[in-house]
Design a protein around this nucleic acid. Structure first.
Lengths: 187, 187
DNA sequence: TATTTTATTGAACGATATGTTCGGTATTGA
DNA sequence: TCAATACCGAACATATCGTTCAATAAAATA
């Protein structure tokens, strides 16, 4: 994973990712072939399989690369989030996520709004859940104690994911702050 | 769709559906082959393709068959729902859906809790959205007018779907009434 | 019942995709 | 400079797809 990579390795890895992303934004995951990927990446067939066991693993690795560091910077120091984000509002983590997305690092938006966005939103949700678990106190005032805890956590995560989906479907016109307000109003 | 069917047609159609459901509860949709389906259904290859253009169409038809009538009975007389369900509570439609699922007609539960449940929950959500659009007044008291309408409707649908997912994951131990309460508390 | 219509069968086919192998080449890092 | 290693790319066996067709069996109709 974090191993030091030969320049060549990193280069072809990036080429494959880039080609894959390009294809994902055009056609459905299921009908993308390895042949197409290596053609667009301009990479040998054997090379592809030297890097990725399977198309599914390619997807998994791509998700880790894309979302990994977004959530990393919220997790590495879970108890100090407020200060990291230089903000005391309880919603800072979520505001920060909207802002991060708006910056569109690594073309994440392109993937989250493409026909295959389910693939990524699902992965995104899994990351979110562990984040929310560590930030649960934020929602204490909104919680109905009747509701089972894991149902509640899941509901928060899903609500957040759906605000993002809606945001993207509507052209990302709203500000991160507005989206945070929508999110908090819904939950 | 509703055409009169030759006995043979209905028979093979059911055999294929049954085989498909059996496979869906064992392995991932993507790695189910037409070959496996016809083998388990004990049906000729050409016969399969005479019924279904594609595996994707098979899935679509299965969804329509499974969910079609559940939602049909809520839609055919949209203005009279209260009386159909013999209940005056505004939540009756949703209570009725939980009850319907609990009866487990057509092994719907098996599909909604299998590893492929995303496939069905997604379809279920789409049906839900049009149902909710026709029942929106039920949620008038809970709605924050700041929130865009389609975001709001989507949120209600997703919340309902997620309560079902949670219900199934936890063994369907709660009563439909309890689930309705959870749902209304979340939304 | 006799006849016509329709559905199923199963083998065979071409096309496409998969994942692997291997000898040769080019790049890298020390 | 040189040893290690990543890439190439063609070839291969295997698997799945979706279609075709002539033969057979079952249902609908008269």
């Amino acid at each position: 994973m974090g191993k030091i990579m030969d320049r060549r390795q990193k280069k072809t890895r990036d080429l494959i990712f880039k080609a894959f992303i390009g294809l994902l934004s055009k056609k459905h995951y299921n009908q993308i072939t390895v042949g197409e990927i290596i053609e667009h990446a301009n990479v040998g067939r054997a090379t592809f399989y030297a890097h990725f066991e399977t198309k599914d693993f390619l997807l998994k690795n791509l998700c880790e690369e894309l979302f990994g560091h977004i959530f990393d910077c919220t997790k590495t120091q879970p108890t100090h989030n407020k200060y990291i984000f230089d903000c005391n509002a309880p919603s800072s983590v979520f505001l920060h996520l909207y802002q991060h997305l708006e910056k569109n690092d690594n073309n994440i938006l392109r993937l989250l709004s493409c026909p295959n966005n389910e693939l990524f939103l699902k992965y995104f949700k899994d990351c979110l859940i562990s984040l929310i678990e560590s930030q649960l106190n934020i929602f204490d005032d909104k919680r109905n104690k009747e509701i089972p805890l894991n149902l509640w956590i899941n509901h928060i995560a899903v609500t957040f994911v759906e605000t993002i989906r809606w945001w993207l479907d509507n052209g990302t016109k709203q500000s991160p702050q507005t989206m945070t307000n929508y999110f908090l109003a819904l939950v």
